[in-house]
């Protein structure tokens, strides 16, 4: 029995009066690929944003490995984590954003190199070499010295993936990474994610609206509805054979 790399225990999140997540329990094993689907406003993105420490849960616990992400032990008691603790625990997590969030003042090679150098204290030469390899892998080996503004949306998103991958996360989060792309550019991005998924050892959580893609890549699919996980199982169980009516109508709207 392998220990989970990510665990959610009764996690709630509200924004003001709005309860977005009403008790999420979740375990993700190392190397597991999980797709999170559901109507907009169901809290899909909030789940991964809490894991990336971009939002703080209102209650409940999130563990990365056996470490509590948002709480730390102090004099035998658990208190709210400080920045140092958050930095230690989230080091194994990487994220790709819907709107890329590339650094506009750096070339794409610098975009990839900067974190290994300044966060992981890698030698510049090593970071450069690894970044070039990663950018070649996502098919952008000929654009190293270009600035993000000179790239298409699909290319930007591939840079963003290389930038996250070069940090060697154990868990990679994808936040609707194709939603901001022109339809003809979606394919090239999904292709790269597929390749990454095949390599195996990294766990992935994909918030997505691409049902066929989820079916293809994910080991497990979560259907999130009104702040709870309404359905979960293997991709074919959830997407093709579920009896859940709300899930059926959600899928129907998507495929029509």
């Amino acid at each position: 029995m392998t220990e989970p790399i990510v665990t959610f225990k009764d996690v709630h999140k509200s924004f003001g009066d709005v309860d977005v997540l009403k008790g999420i329990d979740l375990e993700i094993k190392p190397a597991e690929k999980v797709a999170v689907i559901g109507p907009s406003g169901s809290g899909k993105t909030t789940i991964i944003r809490m894991l990336m420490t971009l939002e703080q849960p209102t209650s409940g616990d999130i563990f990365v490995g056996d470490q509590n992400l948002w709480k730390m032990e102090k004099n035998g008691e658990f208190v709210a984590a400080n920045e140092k603790h958050l930095r230690e625990v989230r080091g194994d997590i990487g994220m790709v954003f819907q709107h890329f969030n590339l650094f506009p003042h750096m070339t794409i090679l610098e975009n990839c190199m900067t974190a290994p150098i300044h966060v992981k204290k890698e030698a510049k030469k090593v970071a450069r070499q690894r970044s070039i390899e990663m950018l070649e892998k996502v098919g952008l080996g000929d654009k190293l010295d270009n600035y993000p503004s000179q790239l298409s949306g699909g290319q930007k998103q591939r840079v963003a993936m290389a930038r996250a991958l070069v940090m060697r996360p154990k868990v990679m989060l994808f936040d609707e990474v194709t939603s901001a792309l022109d339809p003809e550019l979606v394919g090239e991005v999904l292709e790269v994610i597929r390749d990454i998924a095949k390599e195996g050892e990294m766990a992935m959580i994909l918030v997505t609206h691409e049902m066929d893609f989820a079916l293809d890549v994910a080991d497990k699919v979560l259907f999130l509805d009104e702040g709870v996980i309404a359905e979960q199982g293997s991709a074919s169980e959830v997407i093709e054979h579920s009896k859940n009516e709300r899930l059926q109508s959600f899928l129907h709207r998507f495929r029509s």
Binding site: T53, E83, F97, N101, F103, A115, V119
Partner: peptide, 15 residues
Amino acid sequence: GQWEAARALNYPTGK
């Protein structure tokens, strides 16, 4: 998004 990317890449505050 730039702040979030910096956080996601685990930048220390100064850097």
